[in-house]
Nucleic acid binder design. Structure first.
Lengths: 195, 195
DNA sequence: GACTATACGGAATCTCAGTTCCGTTTGTCG
DNA sequence: CGACAAACGGAACTGAGATTCCGTATAGTC
């Protein structure tokens, strides 16, 4: 927990047996589903049951609950990085920015564990983010939108993940009634960021 | 957890012994501090230690961790209700709204447990909110600001707690660097809500 | 000052998840 | 078709933290 796990540093190029590969996928699939639905405290036992394997099998593939979460976070951040990359291809910088924010907001609101991990397991997220150079990519998307005069100059790259996190929570907040949709919240947030 | 606790419905007018009254206060004080600092998973044992009493004493005053949290939430919502009341007294409706939002944002960011409870213990918060008619008050503060043309017409009262919750989280998010201050986030959010 | 209902303290208990272990099953290879 | 390493399943083990219990201490009262 404290010291960032060392993770099989060397090449784990071990060729898995066919059933092992199959189970690995099944576990990841169920985990993705259950964590997204229930958040970080989805239970390993339930994931195993859902995947149709024993707990032991889950643990052989992912020695720790946190390792499993790390794998899932990595997937998510790869998606985010691709979205940022795509945003940079869009001709209109402002629109590219909006598209990136929209993708991020959707992912964040659809995956409860992701938004919880962002403030309960910062180390894990930071690691996943660094692996895809998320901050740099985010910065580029933002800078382009600022250069074109679409977004306020005082916003910094680090604000983006924070704002997206906030959005994730605001939307989930069920303290009062039907609650706002993520689109509406995003719209308000973007309005506040426009130059 | 599921069914809203019944709570001593009748008058608990029992006169407490002097030491009991004293301890009740000490526990509440320590709990407020530790929950604010550490969030919902501050431990009862530690609260007891900090208050200088035994665990048993904590439990006599608050049969459950949740009961203790309820008491603290009630305090917080009383403060929020007073802030809303005060906002209604301010001559300029827009300014009243801003002041109310500012107070809410500050409380939310300074009390980690409060912001966590908003999405992990919705029942408890809803109860605290209803006791002070929070939604009605919030609605009045908002309506006044909308009538005067300061705030967008499409914002509804239910959005306010959601937005404030989001703010609480955005500010705590330490995934990247120094993170934004709550004032800056609030400013962006208010900018997005202006008519 | 003695009496007793209230409170107190904190060791012991309970519960719930994460994790480990080991006997059994199954792919893979010759 | 064996042989055997690789994987599997799931009961049992652990640790953490909430909650209970009960013998002891004390405020309030006569």
């Amino acid at each position: 927990m404290t010291t960032t796990t060392i993770k099989g540093a060397a090449g784990e190029a071990r060729v898995l047996r066919a059933d092992a590969r199959r189970n690995h996928t099944k576990v990841l699939l169920s985990a993705r589903k259950l964590f997204a639905e229930q958040g970080l405290d989805a239970q390993i036992d339930e994931i195993a049951r859902d995947a149709g394997v024993g707990v032991g099998t889950v643990y052989r593939h992912f020695p720790t609950k946190e390792d499993l979460l790390q794998a899932l976070a990595d997937e998510r951040f790869i998606g985010l990085a691709e979205a940022a990359q795509a945003a940079l291809e869009v001709e209109d910088p402002g629109q590219g920015f909006v598209e990136f924010m929209t993708y991020s907001a959707r992912v964040m609101t659809e995956d409860r564990a992701l938004s919880e991990a962002m403030d309960q397991l910062p180390g894990l997220c930071r690691m996943a983010a660094e692996r895809v150079e998320m901050l740099r990519l985010t910065g580029e998307v933002l800078a382009r939108a600022q250069a074109s005069g679409d977004i306020r100059e005082d916003i910094v790259p680090e604000d983006i993940p924070a704002l997206i996190c906030g959005l994730g929570r605001a939307v989930r907040s069920e303290v009062e009634r039907p609650t706002m949709s993520w689109q509406r919240y995003l719209e308000i947030m973007l309005a506040g960021m426009r130059a």
